[in-house]
Design a protein around this nucleic acid. Structure first.
Length: 646
DNA sequence: GAAGCGTTATACTAT
DNA sequence: ATAACGCTTC
């Protein structure tokens, strides 16, 4: 593999711990792979290298590329996300961590559980933080290692009376999780890190496992994740790669400044830099540099292209998001007809919701695409129904799943289900629970029968899913009026299940790394346009990138207004979006709703102080080629039928 | 008292 | 598309 001097110095560094500060497009991934290959070639056993990435997608890609350059060797490097790594390490030694029958729960389950608890604490008609906010507050406090009380009092305007109650709710939430043997995302890291730091046996054992720990996207690790890394180092050496200008996970507790304190936090460590951009043309980088230079923060970044080809980003204005979407589809088709592959194009959106119009246009024009980061396949109500049945059969402590399964049946509502679950929790096993339900519903034996079916196929995931779906079909047919479009999803689910030996592992895999509906449907097709959120686009690139809805209230997003740090993070989000482009960058926006009106009610008058602070307000030539052809005073197109309202 | 139905509000990023 | 909410029915 060819490397430049800086990349080579990093890949072959033979000292203590290292932080590699690498700007966008400077060959971060390439250097990480080269580092792993270098270590293996010098006699390090692959399984003694731990590679932590942010998504499973990234770890898969790195392993594949590593196998390409080291074809004849054993290349099974230990790789995964922080959550994946922690969970599976604990699963391998369940007794050490006291984790034998844990069920992993996702955000939806957290919300569900929180709603139950909030309901008990809230007085009727009272304004009180939503379940989602309560979950967020708790999660943020844990990920930043702060006491709830301190975090809420310093960062919200709630009275002490409310704060006390929020803290009590959090305690109840934790208790409820323990009763149900639930582990949420934070618990996985928290439990792992707790044992790592408090139990010397665990610590010695784990520290002996690895010689080198390679970490991607270091700027997005939060204090809790840092605790995990910190406990694993020495003798293992850290090799962390990151870019402060690409830190976009503050909402999850990451602090872009953590990059700057690396050498003080880690004794015997060095900073190396990668500075040459291989990805983009200078025109794209000029715009990126301009964006960062307008910040009050000095990122000390000035990207310079190695590539000699020139291109100026385009800026296209439209009357509405619908016109904008149609133009993007039309432009894609033109490029495809001129010989480009679909997969050379990436459409980047700030929010999943903001991509709706574009998605409709793609469907309408039959452009193949996959959506990364949108609504997860598992979040669809009908898939959750199947999973509830499977999970209920896995654990009689899993109250959320039992509640969902039981309330699918007529005449069983929340209250009846809750009563039954109270009894079920006192039993000793799932089998006792099923027998109990059989006794309770002697005249409705179909209700326990579903559980029997799943248990019968327990060691055969695809058949368990197939039979569970078949069993629930009459119920779901009644529940969903668009059943015909939903039912095909179960074939896909069955196919996914084939790759797993146990039902629990199957479900866990997709809770830890959800897969979007569109990408499941396109498992076999690979020449597709990628539609992605900025957050999911991190680490990827494409020859042609459309940054859609690059308008006021999106960059910065209206929800961030008023908080300087949040607005600054929005700048980095836009920076990440535009630095994905290799050959061509196309910014599109519709100003129609934004000149005087706002989506969320805040003032968008960008000329007043503390206004929208729109990042592209003063953007013009020569940084971009402005195109206002699509923008007119004609309102005629606005009342056209909106394609997604079919 | 509990279930079930119809109406309405809501929509940022993610392991 | 989905969940919360209020109202009616059993």
């Amino acid at each position: 593999m060819e490397l430049n001097n800086q990349q080579k110095a990093a890949a072959e560094y033979d000292g203590g711990h290292v932080l590699v500060i690498a700007g966008a497009g400077t060959g971060k991934t390439r250097t990480l792979i080269a580092r792993a290959a270098h270590l293996i070639q010098n006699g390090i056993k692959p399984y003694r290298i731990l590679l932590l990435t942010f998504t499973r997608r990234a770890s898969k890609e790195m392993i594949n590329r590593l196998e390409e350059i080291l074809p004849d060797r054993e290349t099974s490097v230990s790789a995964g996300t922080f959550h994946h790594f922690c969970l599976y390490t604990m699963r391998r030694m369940p007794k050490l961590f006291g984790l034998e029958n844990a069920t992993i729960i996702d955000r939806d389950d957290q919300l569900q559980l929180m709603k139950l608890i909030r309901g008990k604490h809230r007085k009727k008609g009272e304004q009180f933080p939503s379940a989602a906010e309560l979950v967020n507050l708790g999660s943020y406090a844990r990920n930043t290692l702060q006491p709830m009380e301190k975090y809420i009092s310093e960062n919200t305007d709630y009275d002490w009376s409310i704060i006390d109650r929020i803290c009590q709710i959090q305690k109840d939430f934790d208790t409820r999780k323990k009763q149900n043997n639930y582990l949420d995302y934070d618990d996985i890291l928290f439990l792992f890190s707790k044992h790592l730091h408090e139990n010397p046996d665990v610590r010695e054992k784990l520290r002996g496992y690895y010689d080198h720990i390679l970490v991607d996207e270091m700027q997005d690790t939060n204090p809790l994740q840092w605790l995990v890394l910190d406990g694993l180092r020495d003798p293992a050496k850290l090799f962390c790669v990151g870019d402060d200008a690409q830190s976009i996970y503050a909402f999850r507790g990451a602090d872009f400044q953590n990059i700057h304190s690396f050498t003080s936090r880690v004794p015997n460590s060095t900073i190396l830099r990668l500075e040459k951009n291989y990805r983009s043309t200078q025109g794209i980088l000029d715009l990126s540099n301009w964006l960062l230079h307008k910040s009050t923060i000095n990122y000390n970044k000035n990207l310079e292209a190695v590539r000699k080809t020139q291109s100026t980003p385009g800026l296209h204005d439209f009357n509405s998001d619908i016109e904008e979407a149609r133009w993007v589809a039309k432009d894609l088709i033109e490029r495809h007809e001129n010989g480009s592959r679909w997969d050379e194009h990436m459409i980047i959106t700030r929010t999943g919701y903001g991509a709706r119009a574009v998605e409709s246009s793609m469907i309408e024009k039959k452009i193949p695409y996959r959506f990364i980061g949108g609504m997860s396949f598992l979040q669809a109500a009908h898939v959750k129904d199947i999973f509830a049945l499977v999970r209920a059969a896995a654990s009689h402590h899993d109250e959320l799943s039992w509640a969902r399964y039981l309330t699918l049946w007529p005449k069983i509502g929340d209250v009846t289900a809750a009563r039954l679950i109270e009894e079920i929790k006192k039993l000793n096993s799932v089998h006792d629970a099923v027998s109990f339900i059989e006794d309770k519903f002697v005249k409705r034996e179909i209700i326990p029968y579903g559980l029997r079916i799943v248990l019968k196929h327990w060691n055969d995931p695809p058949n368990a899913i197939k039979n569970a779906a078949k069993f629930l079909e009459p119920v779901m047919m009644k529940k969903y009026d668009n059943w015909n479009t939903r039912k095909y999803d179960f074939n896909l689910l069955e196919r996914l299940a084939k790759e797993h030996r146990s039902l629990v592992a199957f479900i866990e895999t997709y809770i830890l790394d959800p897969i979007s509906t569109a990408s499941v449907k396109l498992l076999e097709e690979d020449d597709v346009v990628t539609l992605t959120t900025v957050h999911s686009a991190k680490g990827t690139e494409a020859p042609v990138c459309y940054v859609i809805r690059a308008e006021p209230n999106m960059y910065p997003h209206s929800r961030s207004l008023g908080n300087e740090d949040s607005e600054e993070e929005e700048r980095r989000i836009l920076y990440v979006a535009i630095t994905r482009a290799q050959d061509e960058l196309i910014l599109t926006r519709s100003l129609r709703f934004n000149n005087n009106l706002s989506f969320y009610g805040g003032s968008t008058d960008s000329h007043s102080e503390g206004g929208s602070g729109y990042f592209l307000e003063e953007l013009g030539e020569p940084l971009v080629e402005a195109n206002t052809q699509g923008f007119s005073n004609s309102f005629s197109d606005y009342d056209v039928i909106q394609p997604w309202r079919r």
